[in-house]
Amino acid sequence: MTATAEQDRRYQEAAAEFGPALERLARGYEAHPERCRDLVQDIHVAVWKSLALFDGRCSTRTWVYRVAHNTATSHVLKERRRGAWVTLDAAAEINDGSDIEADTSHARALQKLMALIQSLEPSDRQIMLLYLEGLDAAAMAEITGLKSGHVATRIHRIKALLSRRFHAGGRS
C-alpha cells in the first residue's frame, strides 16, 4: 500500500469515527453557518494532510482532536475577534440576562451553550468542547498539553459556570 493510500485509509476511518464530533467542534469555534461549513472542510483537509505524518506516537483520537483544535484555533486567530473573548473566570461573572423558563427549551439551551462556548478564549474553549464530548481528564491533558491538575481545575470551573448559567437563570 502506498503512503497516500495508507493516508487515505486512515483518514476515512478517522472521518467515520470522529466526523460528527469534528462538526460540533467547528460549531464551537465559528457561529456563521457558511464559515462554519468551510471550517469543517478545512479541518477535514488538515486531518487528511496530517495523517501522512501519523507515526502512532499517540492514539488516532488524540491526533485528530489536536489537529482539529489547532486548525480551528488558527481560524479564530485569523478572524481577529479576540477582543470579545473571555476566560472561564470572567464568563462566570457575566450575567447573560436570560430567564429560567426559556432555558427549558432544548433548542434554546443549545443556542445558549453555543454562545457561551464561542465567547471563551481558545484554550478554555478547547477544554469546554472536549469536556462536552465526554473525554476524560487524562485524554484532555494529552490533547491540550495542559497538566492534569489544570485540566481538573478548569473542568470544575466549567461545571460551576454551566450550573450557574443554566440552573440559576444567569444570575451571577
Partner: peptide, 14 residues
C-alpha cells in the same frame, strides 16, 4: 505560517 500536525499539543501550537 504554523501548520498543525497531531504530534504537537494544542497549548504548544497556540
Amino acid at each position: 505560517a504554523p501548520v498543525s500536525d497531531g504530534a504537537e499539543d494544542c497549548l504548544d501550537f497556540h
